[in-house]
């Protein structure tokens, strides 16, 4: 086994599925997900030496995946807001309605736009917890903070997200026992 294979087996192989899971769950569109994945791999390529020297290389790579995916969400949300503004000017029909109302966009897009409005650390914590069910210790490792801080980021992010979603009208579920987080 050559050095490159050895490096790949050590750095990438154990987290291949996690990387794919994060990207595809956050960015639903297959084409966008494939582009984003390429972008992430390009970044890993550029930082390969740094990743290899890192005391926790897997957390480093997952952090790259999460931050890039989250950035993609925000970029997309910004683009959509611009499009809405443009449309409103054109048609003068969106002005009295809430941003990205569920009637105008599908639920998945609304959820992602709400996540994109979270502060980065809260957004990262929420995404990690939701996409791969990461324990707080893993989230702390990826975010580079203590477990307590990771927990705090998540709970604040979750509360804010729920609030944002309620504003968008996504609150029709009535399962009160759902409290695993």
């Amino acid at each position: 086994m050559g050095k490159s294979d050895e490096l790949y087996e050590r750095l990438i192989r154990p987290i291949e599925k996690r990387m794919i899971g994060i990207v595809t769950r956050i960015v639903r569109d297959p084409e966008d997900a494939a582009d984003l994945f390429q972008e992430i791999l390009a970044l890993i390529w550029a930082r390969l030496e740094r990743i290899d020297r890192h005391p926790n290389p897997h957390a480093y790579i997952i952090r790259i995946c999460i931050t890039r995916s989250y950035d993609a969400l925000r970029k997309r949300a910004r683009r959509r807001r611009r499009e809405i503004r443009l449309e409103s000017i054109k048609a003068k029909i969106w002005s009295a309605r809430p941003l990205g109302g569920v009637k105008e966009v599908d639920k998945a897009t609304a959820i992602r736009e709400a996540i994109a409005q979270l502060p980065p650390n809260q957004g990262h914590a929420v995404l990690l917890r939701l996409t791969e069910d990461s324990p707080y210790r893993t989230i702390a490792g990826v975010l580079g903070c203590s477990e307590a801080t990771a927990r705090s980021h998540f709970s604040k992010g979750k509360a804010r997200l729920v609030k944002l979603l309620s504003e968008l009208g996504i609150s029709s579920y009535k399962e009160e026992t759902y409290s695993e987080y």
Partner: peptide, 22 residues
């Protein structure tokens, strides 16, 4: 307020969870 909203909106949270854990 955030806490209260969160409690009230477990449905919303489930929607998020389901959407992101597909």
């Amino acid at each position: 307020t955030e806490k209260k909203d969160h409690i009230k909106n477990n449905g919303a949270w489930k929607a998020v969870h389901e959407d992101l854990s597909t």
